[in-house]
Design a protein around this nucleic acid. Structure first.
Lengths: 233, 233
DNA sequence: GCTTGTTCTCAGCCAGTCTTCAGGCGTATG
DNA sequence: CATACGCCTGAAGACTGGCTGAGAACAAGC
């Protein structure tokens, strides 16, 4: 994935080895410079040593919880932004107010699209003083990551959350062929256990909503995948 | 086969001796430097010792499964890309997330063409940052491995998946005479039990689609095989 | 609670694709 | 020159991948 924030340094803190592997593999592949820690105390040390631009932090850790980790990091003067990973139910008071400091959180199970979008958004806010585009464009398609508004040829189009995530993923990877497996891996939650056909369904929905007019932008490559691109290239 | 990634070092991990033999022989012939392992634990050791550029890894192994192998390899710091071999049906839990780190998978039974194409694609993506050509050319033939687009003399030509694989195989082996048996072995799935005649059929289809104009590039050597080459040689 | 929108599954359908078969043609060989 | 063999190709039928409508399952808001 051609992430705009290429080379930003992330510290990923997560004790479940499977999820840690999932995260670090995909964030690295997305162009981030990733280091990892599997406990709260290791995280505090790593943050001091490596000075990451952003921390991805599971709130449930074996030793300290995520909020403790942040407090310790802040006490040593670091003002690193954080994206928290929390369980679905966590209506915890603690989660509240997280977004106040420019931080954000994502609930498990998340999709990688979701997480990387949040990371990008937080980095956008905190680095380079707010002055970066939250708007993706491709041909006459426009997608605003902040407001979740989508326009085709200037016309506003209403998308459901999944449709939006799928379109964003296609736009971030415009002109790149994406297999159904890749789309499933990135756009759907990591615990989704269904078949490929759901991708076909959502591609179908998207086409109906954003690709009814010429020129067609969403193309099927039979046996290979889908690609967003201008025809006749 | 004149693979672009000649000399890349592969580690092939597969417990079925027949398939292992098939794979290592043909990948060696394709120009890769191949070492092998027949169990998960042997694979981990071999990866540490030999530092391959890519691992071809059966997910069904007698001792550890493929995912365990990867995790152990990653824990010892290796960031080697992987192409997994999986059973067709395996919509299995585990298969999800495989494409996240730039890795890929091929379902059994595959064709060798399929597998080497995936290996090349993964190496292309992971080594030397993405911008290497996915385009094969021979004379006025162009074939894009990523988008599956084919041009003859600048004209776009539509090919079916099998036609595409056959042409790619011919192009990768331009100027080399290929017997029908060879073509069958490389382009068709290894469990294909059919007649040579299907190769003739597909050569015929290909000629109709990409070889209608002068100079003719696909030549028959009666009793021997086929060859892609410029005439008057 | 109910309503509304959304997610996901399922099954039917269609176009395109794969595979087989058989007849015809050309070339090599006696 | 006759024959056999290899190759080419049209036709036909089976099969498959992808698209979509219908609806069940679920969640969110009222």
């Amino acid at each position: 994935m051609a992430a705009p924030q290429t080379e930003a340094r992330l510290l990923v803190v997560e004790d479940d080895p499977n999820i840690l592997e999932l995260l670090s593999a995909s964030l690295r592949f997305a162009g981030f410079d990733v280091s990892t820690a599997t406990s709260g105390s290791a995280a505090v040390t790593a943050a001091k040593d490596r000075r990451p631009d952003l921390v991805v932090l599971d709130v449930m850790l074996p030793d300290l919880d995520g909020f403790e980790v942040i407090r310790l990091m802040r006490e040593s003067g670091t003002r690193t932004p954080v994206v928290f990973l929390t369980a679905r139910d966590a209506t915890d008071d603690k989660i509240r107010g997280l977004t106040l400091g420019g931080d954000d959180y994502v609930t498990k199970p998340f999709s990688l699209e979701e997480l990387t979008a949040r990371i990008r958004a937080v980095l956008r806010r905190t680095t380079s003083g707010d002055r970066s585009p939250s708007r993706l464009t491709f041909a006459d398609l426009e997608l605003d990551e902040e407001t979740h508004e989508v326009y085709r040829a200037g016309q506003r189009v209403q998308l459901s959350p999944t449709e939006f995530k799928l379109l964003r993923y296609l736009m971030l990877n415009a002109n790149r062929v994406l297999s159904k497996a890749q789309i499933l891996d990135h756009v759907w939650n990591y615990d989704f256990r269904g078949d490929d056909n759901i991708v076909e369904s959502y591609i179908s929905y998207l086409r109906r909503k954003v690709d009814t007019q010429q020129p067609r932008l969403i193309h099927t490559l039979r046996g290979v995948g889908y690609v967003l691109r201008k025809p006749a290239t």
